[in-house]
């Protein structure tokens, strides 16, 4: 019972002390991963490596397996086969969602998912790492150090003046930034960001690009995005997924002249600009 109570966040002490070992420059390994849903191979023998501090964009037509891939990394879906490692040592397939989150993988959903009846500040407080043990939860106060951490993130995502407002009345773009801020409160090593600029104005897109670029280096950032202009503005390294596997990988300029990529994706339809 005492373990149960002290472990509401779900990470055993053993896992907390184990730190991510990215000595070989690779933070995330997906190797030969396959997932089948009712006979349909959503992910088909996918191998993908994300470097430490890298900003990687993942593109691909609908049904290419982008969201399923995120589900696998964050523990929501377990693959039929394959290996998923965080650093050299942490086998993500053995962990569930809260444990993976606590290991340092933050996930932003496609639809902005902030807690609307809470203020911006309370949303960030909710996400704060280290506050999730039982004793940390049974408090109504913020310590000075916690307040400083929240202020730093507020500044980073540009919501300092809005800290006392309810998240529900923020503009769409501000909600997206707040959610990114919540991920940052978790002090993650890896950020998975699903379509961050869908529905944003051009000005909001520019700020988001700037924000994500500023996070790369100290974090690895994986962005799934449809908007080619946005992809061009943030990433050098782009992975094209198609039918659950990697079709091509490289710089966007190279990919855009790759006949195979053009055939399955870039040339298809008018949705991409």
């Amino acid at each position: 019972m005492s373990e149960l109570v002290s472990d509401l966040d779900g990470s055993g002490l053993r896992l907390r002390q184990e730190s991510v070992d990215a000595r070989h420059g690779i933070l995330l390994y997906l190797e030969e991963v396959t997932v089948t849903f009712d006979g349909f191979k959503a992910i088909d023998n996918l191998s993908l490596y994300i470097g430490d501090g890298e900003l990687r964009c993942i593109i691909g037509p609908n049904g290419a397996g982008k969201t399923t891939m995120m589900d696998i990394i964050t523990g929501k879906t377990k693959p039929d086969s394959g290996r998923v490692f965080f650093g050299q040592t942490i086998d993500l397939l053995k962990l569930d969602e809260p444990a993976i989150a606590r290991m340092g993988i933050g996930r932003k959903f496609q639809r902005p998912t902030v807690i609307e009846p809470l203020t911006v500040l309370e949303n960030l407080e909710l996400a704060m790492s280290g506050a999730k043990r039982f004793r940390g939860l049974i408090t109504t106060r913020l310590s000075g150090e916690e307040r400083d951490r929240i202020d730093a993130v507020l500044e980073k995502v540009g919501l300092t003046e809005h800290s006392g407002r309810l998240a529900g009345i923020l503009a769409h773009g501000q909600k997206q930034w707040l959610e990114i801020g919540m991920l940052l409160m978790q002090e993650p090593r890896l950020l998975l960001v699903d379509e961050p600029v869908a529905g944003m104005t051009p000005a909001e897109m520019d700020r988001t690009a700037e924000l994500l670029r500023s996070l790369a280096g100290s974090h690895s950032v994986v962005v799934v995005e449809h908007d080619m202009g946005f992809v061009r503005s943030i990433a050098d390294q782009v992975t094209v997924l198609h039918q659950g596997r990697v079709l091509a990988e490289g710089r966007l300029e190279e990919l855009q002249i790759d006949p195979m990529v053009i055939e399955v994706y870039l040339g298809a339809g008018d949705a991409y600009h």
């Binding site: 807690i115 407080e125 909710l126």
Partner: peptide
Amino acid sequence: RLGRVLVAIRDSEDRARFLGY
């Protein structure tokens, strides 16, 4: 804070889970 976790669970269970709760 636990109270805010409850609200998070009510409004977006997945968000709470992926925050590590």
